[in-house]
Design a protein around this nucleic acid. Structure first.
Length: 339
DNA sequence: AAGTTTGACAACCGCGCAGGT
DNA sequence: AACCTGCGCGGTTGTCAAACT
């Protein structure tokens, strides 16, 4: 027995642009009865529309708290940073922009920001640090957490070693997906659990304006407070721990001397090492001559458990290139250097 | 002035998930 | 367990006006 066809299949329903009368009818009905039962709403309200269409019209246009007008520079900046962390998860991004809808942000991204960022990154190549994985098999259960991005394709392979760009930001999802090979052992499950926990904390923090609780949870389970004072906590920055994204890509990084071989702040590595340790997989972290190995040898702890866990990892961090980049070059790639 | 292209935004569509039966 | 229902999400398409030729 199949599912009933959506009401949008009905040809006698109104389609296309909404009329002023329809808007008033829908608005009045919702003011009286509330936003419940979209499927039955059109009939009750006397609208010859699909319930989904009514819902969309209300949420994207008629809602009283919709903010009209141009996206401000601050909003744009937040959209860019959020997209870097989350990819095309427009609803989640919209949740951080009061009065803006997911549709509006999606449209704004597609018509303005994607081109703008593509232009800016194509004219300003950046040094290589951590090298993203090639795309690989997806991992059961990860689809929801890491939806595929339309901006990052298999054909984009040469981006891997070139620069950070808007598309590179999608790597966060792809890296996770890439590390998830088809065979799933207990250790991999444990690693995945760690990743899920971090991701959940992140997403909760994104949805929660007052993220003090999440902040404390994260800080209490990591060494981050050694490098990042509590008062400067920004929940967005913590995505790097879980997503495998360069911390400095997001956070106003303090250049520290955690690792004597370079000037890079590896406190994200420390935090995730702790998480891996809790999961009992810390010994799986070191992989050949890469950042994790160096960190381990220096007893500083390695990197993101998922970032380095995968046994078939081929393009691990090029520490040589990393160390060769000067502090000045490194600062060039930061997106948020505090004044 | 007319036709074409481009950009912006609204709306549609299909899919997947969650909860209920 | 299987199915139904409603909803939310993200990708895609449609529409219209402005810009361009």
């Amino acid at each position: 027995m199949g599912r009933k066809p959506c009401c949008s299949k009905r040809e006698d329903l109104n389609r296309g642009a909404w009329t002023a009368h329809e808007d008033i009818t829908l608005t009045n009905y919702i003011h009286t009865h509330g936003e419940i039962g979209w499927r039955s709403l059109p009939k009750k309200a006397g609208l010859n529309r699909c319930g989904k269409s009514c819902r969309l019209r209300w949420l994207n246009y008629l809602r009283p708290d919709i903010k009209r007008g141009n996206i401000s520079p601050d909003e744009e900046d937040l959209i860019i940073r959020m997209h870097r962390l989350l990819g095309n998860r427009w609803a989640l991004i919209a949740g951080r922009l009061p009065g803006r809808t997911d549709n509006e942000i999606k449209n704004y991204w597609n018509t303005h920001l994607s081109k703008k960022l593509a232009l800016s990154t194509s004219t300003a190549p950046m040094p290589t640090t951590h090298v993203p994985l090639q795309k690989s098999h997806s991992f059961p259960g990860m689809e929801k957490l890491s939806p595929p991005s339309q901006n990052y394709s298999e054909d984009d392979g040469d981006k891997h070693c070139k620069m950070r760009s808007a598309s590179d930001n999608e790597m966060s999802s792809d890296v996770l997906g890439g590390m998830m090979q088809t065979s799933i052992g207990d250790e991999e499950e444990a690693a995945l659990d760690v990743s899920r926990s971090w991701r959940q904390l992140l997403e909760e923090s994104l949805l929660d304006e007052d993220s003090e609780v999440v902040e404390n949870q994260i800080l209490s389970s990591s060494n981050l407070n050694d490098s990042y004072p509590v008062e400067s906590f920004d929940p967005l920055s913590f995505s790097c721990i879980d997503f495998g994204v360069e911390l400095e890509d997001i956070y106003p990084v303090q250049i520290t001397q955690n690792n004597p071989s370079d000037n890079i702040d590896h406190s994200d590595c420390l935090a995730t090492y702790n998480a891996a340790e809790q999961a009992g997989i810390a010994d799986k972290l070191q992989q050949g001559n890469n950042c994790a190995e160096q960190m381990r040898q220096m007893e500083l702890g390695p990197l993101d458990p998922l970032f380095y866990y995968e046994k078939n990892w081929e393009d691990s961090v090029d520490m040589t290139a990393l160390c060769k980049s000067s502090e000045e070059e490194y600062l060039d790639i930061l997106v948020d250097i505090p004044n």
